[in-house]
């Protein structure tokens, strides 16, 4: 089975973010970057399917030069090769426009299965995979925790709200968006990291793919959320703050 995994590089969760001078995006220069969380689970699912069934895992990622480190990480974990869509114009693209880039890069590969993460940790549209399916004219299911294949049929477990699930069957080829937590993530081995250096990373540009930047939904500006609730912050060193909180729990919340 040929499996494509769409992987996005996103800011590391714990790094503080600052709004850039244009007010349209965050200052990227002093950020640390990582593989989007649900994409890591999508990659893991792909690698496990390949281990069971054979085939090839191809990673596709759209982004500037820096994305190369996340692509290498995916290759080190076991992906066979990668397509890097070199593009720096995300400010002028929406989810449809990014999905078009991915779709054009994926089409010539004629994959059996396309996996994406459920949602990106930065823009958080939660849409790219579903749009991708529409553009590729393939069936899709989102929020998937578990994938099994028999012949040309997929059996997937979909998460619903509040602890409910659903099993769904669909034919290959298909697109799935993967929810976190379905598998245990692997680490790259030293051997894997070494091998990754020799694996193919094909670079293409939006112009090569014939997908100019465009947006129906334009992100006009970003801002710190306005505080609506006045949280009482208990100041001081840990010991003083703890003592102050105990007072509150005793006399105001009355739970002690």
């Amino acid at each position: 089975m040929k499996i494509i995994v769409a992987i996005k590089q996103v800011p590391e969760r714990d790094t503080p973010v600052r709004i850039d001078s244009g007010g349209k995006w965050i200052e990227e220069t002093d950020l640390q970057w990582t593989m989007n969380e649900s994409d890591a689970y999508a990659l893991e699912e792909a690698l496990q399917l390949k281990e069971k069934d054979g085939g090839e895992v191809v990673v596709v990622s759209a982004g500037p030069e820096r994305v190369g480190s996340t692509i290498r990480e995916a290759l080190a974990k076991g992906a066979d090769r990668a397509i890097h869509i070199e593009c720096n114009d995300f400010a002028q693209r929406d989810a449809l426009s990014v999905a078009r880039l991915l779709a054009e890069a994926i089409k010539p590969e004629s994959p059996d299965l396309v996996l994406t993460g459920l949602q990106s940790d930065d823009l958080g549209y939660g849409q790219t995979g579903v749009i991708l399916a529409e553009l590729l004219e393939l069936p899709h299911v989102s929020l998937i925790l578990h994938v099994e294949k028999t012949g040309t049929l997929l059996h997937v477990k979909r998460e619903l709200e509040e602890g409910w699930f659903q099993n769904i069957e669909l034919p290959l080829p298909a697109v799935l968006t993967i929810q976190s937590g379905g598998n245990k993530l692997r680490y790259a081995t030293l051997m894997g990291i070494k091998r990754a250096k020799t694996k193919e990373v094909r670079r293409v540009t939006p112009a090569d793919l014939g997908v100019p930047a465009s947006a129906v939904a334009i992100l006009e500006h970003i801002a710190q959320p306005q505080k609506q609730k006045s949280t009482q912050i208990l100041p001081g060193p840990a010991k003083d703050a703890a003592a102050a909180l105990v007072e509150k729990l005793k006399f105001e919340v009355r739970v002690l």
């Binding site: 800011p11 973010v17 709004i19 940790d121 823009l123 992100l219």
Partner: peptide, 12 residues
């Protein structure tokens, strides 16, 4: 956006 750390304003 960014998991609730910032708000984005969008126009269609």
């Amino acid at each position: 956006i960014l998991q609730g750390r910032l708000n984005g304003t969008y126009r269609h």
